[in-house]
Amino acid sequence: MQQKDAIPKVEKRFKAIVRQPESFLQADIINAFEHKCSPIILNTNPKEIVTNFQWGLIPNWAKDTSIQQQTINARMETVTEKPSFSNITHQRCLVIATAFYEWRWLDDKGKSKQKYIIYGEEELFAMAGLYSFWRNPADGEPKNSFTILTTEANETMAYVHNHKKRMPVVLKKEDESAWLDTQNKIEAFSFPYSANLLAFPV
């Protein structure tokens, strides 16, 4: 999708408005470790798609941004225990995507790998995330950030991600609103994605 075509499709799919269309990230490949801002929906305003949150969560107590290298993902099973995430489990978001990438190890040590692209059942889908607000103690500059929850891999993803056998919590369309509702326990969403995922080597 070109950006001019993507925004109306995203808005229609999620019944929400893109707040700042000029900064809406549209790219074939997004490297998590570049910490780019990606479109997400916050539970505090599900009718709006925000574009100023970096991938790689910075806890509000962090001294600098270096922790982002370790907070790209959060394990669903331990998210309520880890200091980086335990006090923000009520700050939930939907991370919007058309696909995601994962690597299959072709040998025991992962020296040889095959990259796969994974699609959901629809052109657009959402992954479960948590978000944070942080202010740099050195200069007062604010930064918004998020992490993506992961869970046990389903059959397709266990084949692709054959080393750790993990996958993002890809939400079923009917579960998206439930994820944003903090009255629902996080553990209720700790399931491998039961609908079809399509994986292709690239």
Rank of each mutant, 00 (worst) to 15 (best):
T51R: 12
Q68G: 00
L25F: 06
E77N: 07
L25Y: 04
S23K: 11
Q70T: 14
L25M: 07
T80G: 01
Q54V: 00
V79Q: 05
L57V: 12
N31S: 10
Q70V: 00
L57Y: 11
A27F: 04
Q20W: 13
I29K: 15
T51W: 05
Q70E: 14
P59I: 00
N31R: 02
S66V: 08
K47M: 07
E34L: 08
I41Q: 06
W55D: 06
N45Q: 15
N43I: 07
S23C: 14
E48D: 02
K36P: 05
Q68Y: 00
T51Y: 10
Q70N: 14
D64A: 03
P21F: 03
Q54R: 13
I49Q: 07
L42Q: 02
N43K: 02
K47A: 12
N60K: 13
N31Q: 06
F33Y: 11
E22L: 07
F33I: 01
M76A: 15
Q70F: 12
T71M: 11
F24T: 05
N52W: 09
W61Y: 09
T71S: 08
W55F: 06
T44E: 12
V50I: 13
E77K: 09
I49P: 11
Q69Y: 09
L42N: 04
T44H: 09
L25P: 00
C37S: 15
I41L: 08
E22I: 11
P46S: 10
T51G: 09
W61D: 03
Q54S: 14
